[in-house]
């Protein structure tokens, strides 16, 4: 239907909450009305029109229903795509913290880097970061019991500490390295990491799957050998990753990974799959 473009004109010099900038809501407004949207910025407030040049373009038929395009780096723009339920947001640059916070559907793509808490408590949709993300991706807010509970988070580059902390459902794929405590306190869900891992991965992991494409230097002492006989699940798993990013899309059904189970200090039904 229509694409709303926000082209960065002036970075405000402080952090701005972009939760109101959802494609469905913007599509119902005129360009002038979008410019008058007042966004919270800590103790300050600022109008969208002060930061962006705003443009509206009707999409070709067959395009995404409604979409929002942000051109330029906006690392100062937090909570972009928060509570996104439908439509598409694309950032041609980097985004701030809490990108995709509690999104339930739709698609959010950041070409550059994203800040801390990327995909925090998201429950649906697809969030893609072309660069790297900060700490606590797919995790909960501090003090909350559940992190990500659905959807797909793909980070092409590396990610910071505490990836997938308390995650319960969904798929997270990291094309680069992960910081310390990846998959800590994982309740369930799937995390794949193509690069290297920081220390204490799988700490307190109860269930879920941690797929590693590079063997870690050592396993946590609370993980044990996971045995054999999971080839049917592996075939289903590999097929489900066929449309995701490389190298996950290139996994072979015939190349069974080494399986470990843990964290035995807690429930112990989590699995660590080490390919190669």
């Amino acid at each position: 239907m229509s694409t709303t473009t926000l082209r960065v004109r002036n970075a405000p010099g402080f952090r701005v909450d972009a939760a109101q900038l959802l494609p469905g809501a913007l599509a119902a407004l005129t360009v002038a009305e979008i410019g008058r949207i007042v966004l919270p910025a800590g103790n300050e407030r600022c109008a969208a029109g002060d930061m962006f040049d705003i443009e509206r373009r009707q999409a070709d038929s067959g395009g995404h229903a409604v979409s929002l395009l942000i051109e330029g780096d906006v690392p100062w723009l937090d909570r972009l795509g928060a509570h996104l339920a439908q439509g598409r947001i694309e950032v041609r640059g980097s985004s701030g913290d809490h990108t995709g916070f509690r999104m339930t559907g739709g698609e959010l793509r950041v070409d550059g880097n994203s800040g801390d808490f990327t995909g925090c408590q998201m429950s649906g949709g697809r969030l893609t970061v072309g660069g790297q993300s900060g700490d606590f991706a797919a995790g909960p807010l501090p003090g909350d019991m559940e992190g990500m509970t659905g959807g797909t988070l793909t980070i092409h580059g590396k990610t910071g500490a505490r990836l997938g902390d308390r995650m319960r459902r969904g798929l997270v794929l990291v094309g680069g390295d992960a910081g310390e405590c990846a998959a800590s306190r994982l309740v369930a869900g799937t995390i794949g990491i193509a690069g290297t891992l920081g220390p204490h991965f799988g700490y307190g992991m109860r269930r879920g799957t941690l797929l590693l494409l590079q063997a870690p230097a050592s396993l946590p002492p609370t993980f044990s050998d996971g045995g054999q006989g999971f080839d049917v699940f592996w075939a289903l798993f590999v097929r489900s990753l066929a449309a995701e990013i490389a190298p996950f899309s290139t996994l072979k059904e015939s190349a069974l990974p080494r399986r470990y189970t843990g964290d035995l200090a807690v429930d112990g039904r989590g699995e660590l799959l080490v390919v190669g």
Partner: peptide, 24 residues
């Protein structure tokens, strides 16, 4: 109690340990 589930796409699968591996 040893069974585990896995969401792949929109489908949830159950993996039940049996003597030849897993019943999916």
């Amino acid at each position: 109690g040893w069974q585990i589930s896995k969401m792949l796409g929109d489908t949830r699968y159950w993996r039940v340990p049996v003597m030849d591996g897993e019943f999916v």
